[in-house]
């Protein structure tokens, strides 16, 4: 279900971020795009609202694998009452972090594909967030001879890639 009130949600997010930035003393600015204009040109993110943060404190957001950016993204999604499975509809970005990360994920997919084709064995990626796992699944769409699925619980959930039709029996169906 799409976000039904883009303008209202954008308004809520704007006042939330304004409060957070001024109370937290962060040197950041932000720009919110909602609706069709927010769509990811690469089609990797299913976003309906896109928030770009800029300013001297951007490194604070993107360091340690974007830990703070992800934390803000999660809390912001909760502020507009998105359920966990709807979180992809809101995306926070800073210093082109998402695009760079998407590129890293595509490269990792390429490397893994080569490996699996070469030795025929399943390859497990490191645990990732749901939106990064989604990017990974999408990246493998162009490899017709390979399949992917996810395994593990919560924070430790990860993607496995294997030759088509050779789903490892260790992967539980879910």
């Amino acid at each position: 279900m799409p976000i039904d009130d883009h303008a209202g949600s954008a308004q809520k997010l704007a006042s939330f971020l304004k409060m957070l930035i001024s109370t937290g003393g962060l040197r950041l600015k932000f720009r919110i795009t909602a609706g069709a204009g927010a769509a990811d040109p690469d089609g990797l993110e299913a976003r309906e609202i896109y928030i770009e943060l800029s300013g001297p404190d951007v490194p604070l957001l993107t360091q340690r694998g974007g830990e703070l950016l992800r934390a803000l993204e999660h809390v912001a999604a909760k502020v507009i009452r998105l359920e966990n499975e709807e979180h992809d509809k809101l995306s926070l970005d800073a210093g082109n972090f998402k695009a760079l990360r998407a590129q890293e994920i595509r490269l990792a997919a390429e490397t893994a594909a080569e490996k699996v084709r070469h030795n025929g064995q399943p390859f497990s990626f490191a645990p990732m967030s749901s939106r990064e796992r989604r990017m990974l699944h999408l990246a493998f769409r162009e490899y017709q001879d390979l399949e992917t699925s996810s395994s593990g619980e919560g924070m430790r959930r990860f993607v496995v890639v294997y030759p088509k039709g050779k789903r490892p029996s260790a992967l539980r169906d879910r």
Partner: peptide, 13 residues
């Protein structure tokens, strides 16, 4: 996850 996210924000500030 929400508690952990709040702690991350708090940690940065």
């Amino acid at each position: 996850r929400t508690a952990r996210s709040m702690r991350t924000i708090l940690g940065a500030v």
